[in-house]
């Protein structure tokens, strides 16, 4: 019964998102809008990993843009220079992300969490430096072209690509829901609280930190590959600071430690600039201000509003509220 409930709560949201997402191309006429929705999916994949790492496990990586770019570059180089097929380049690029995350994670995750933050930020910068200056290998600031994806001679169209990425995003969300609604989620949440208590209950704290750091890096790499395929190119801007700013803004505005915060935040961050004229110049300031205001006044982000909203409706219905409304925890 309860396991049915768990399974239902794991699948219901993603199923709805899949349904809505599948209808979107029918409603949109311009390729530009389709591109925006595709970018939302990519950012959601990227930030879901970040949310698991920071929102749930309380460990912060500021080098997700580095893994985003690492995935994209590894994939592109394997495909173009290495002549690998799509189906071998994709897992290989993800494995490279996992390997690098392992190497960075082992020395850092035994330490306090800000060491990870600082060193991963450094990783992002180092990667950006390599990408823009090792010209013969990475193409320098101009980047590289990504060959278009073909399956048995058929070139994948923009719409087909969107459906593929949508499906991947939904699967990532299902995986996230599975993680956070089982003992894995509890183990992750115990990391952000009391490590000694977690250890004395049998949680191998270092191993779990490493696992979730690797998972979030692999998801960042996956998003990077998707971005490379959609943009038909990779360049050093994949690993640059604005990507990190977007990741943080999406995660914090959407709601840290919530299931659909990444998607919600990605929608806001991708769509909002379209409505604001002259957004370009002050984009950085707006992101910074949003980040700060949400940190101060809405630590659970936009997702935090939803249970409050339900709480209000329930109270308006004048029925005695059963139990306390949980701030920030969404359990549909």
């Amino acid at each position: 019964m309860k396991s049915l409930n768990t399974a239902r709560s794991m699948l219901a949201g993603p199923a709805l998102i899949l349904l809505v997402g599948a209808l979107v191309p029918l409603l949109l006429t311009s390729g530009f809008h389709l591109r925006l929705v595709t970018i939302i999916c990519i950012y959601t994949i990227l930030c879901t990993g970040f949310n698991l790492l920071y929102g749930y496990a309380g460990q912060i990586s500021m080098g997700q843009q580095g893994f985003f770019a690492l995935g994209a570059y590894a994939f592109t180089l394997l495909m173009s220079a290495g002549n690998w097929s799509f189906w071998s380049a994709l897992p290989a690029a993800l494995l490279i992300c996992a390997g690098v995350a392992l190497l960075i994670g082992i020395p850092l995750l035994r330490l306090r969490s800000h060491y990870l933050a600082m060193a991963t930020l450094c990783f992002g910068l180092v990667f950006a430096g390599i990408a823009s200056r090792w010209i013969e290998f990475t193409g320098g600031t101009a980047g590289m072209m990504v060959p278009s994806v073909k399956f048995s001679g058929h070139i994948v169209s923009r719409t087909e690509l969107y459906y593929a990425i949508l499906l991947i995003m939904v699967l990532v969300l299902v995986m996230q829901n599975f993680i956070v609604s089982t003992h894995m989620g509890r183990a992750l949440m115990s990391l952000r609280g009391d490590e000694t208590a977690a250890q004395s209950l049998g949680v191998n704290v270092t191993a779990w930190k490493l696992r979730i750091f690797i998972l979030s890096s692999v998801l960042a790499g996956l998003a990077g590959i998707a971005s490379a395929v959609v943009n038909r190119q990779v360049n050093p801007s994949f690993s640059e600071f604005p990507i990190l700013v977007s990741i943080l803004t999406i995660a914090v505005v959407g709601g840290l430690g919530t299931r659909y915060g990444a998607l919600l935040g990605a929608c806001v961050v991708v769509i909002a600039p379209q409505g604001l004229a002259a957004f370009g110049e002050s984009e950085t300031i707006i992101y910074g201000v949003c980040l700060l205001l949400f940190l101060m006044f809405m630590p659970h982000g936009l997702s935090g509003l939803i249970p409050k909203l339900f709480g209000r409706i329930r109270r308006k219905a004048a029925s005695p509220a059963p139990g306390v409304v949980k701030a920030g925890e969404i359990k549909p």
Partner: peptide
Amino acid sequence: VRVFHGMSVLDNVLMGFHHTLIDGLLPSM
């Protein structure tokens, strides 16, 4: 007292079962 904040009372108790459960993300999946 060291309980895990941000988690429900039941989830806190369930933490106690952790060592009996499948360890790791991939095996669990």
